[in-house]
């Protein structure tokens, strides 16, 4: 089974990198771009084939390592 974890900043947490991207897009002439937020995507394959167990396992990974839940949210996608 393939897992994909999206880690994004929580609402209300300032994202200076997102702001810099927003300004760079504006400087390149892409108008009307607002609220840019930068995050990260982490992909991996899992030996576990049961979807419920796999989800629980990936959630534990997110809580322990993949996301810092003080400032970040995570979303899990499972395929296969």
């Amino acid at each position: 089974m393939k897992a994909r974890v999206h880690v994004t900043l929580k609402n209300g947490v300032l994202d200076p990198q997102g702001k810099a991207i927003e300004h760079a897009l504006a400087a390149l002439g892409f108008g009307g771009v607002n609220e840019v937020r930068q995050g990260k995507v982490i992909e991996f394959s899992l030996a576990e084939s049961d979807p419920a167990k796999a989800r629980a396992e990936v959630e534990a990974m997110c809580e322990k390592l993949l996301a810092n839940t003080v400032i970040e949210n995570y979303a899990i996608e499972l395929n296969g």
Binding site: L14, P16, Q17, N68, V70
Partner: peptide, 10 residues
């Protein structure tokens, strides 16, 4: 408590 984020001016 808390976290150290990227410097505001990057």
């Amino acid at each position: 408590p808390g976290v150290l984020m990227r410097n505001a001016d990057l």
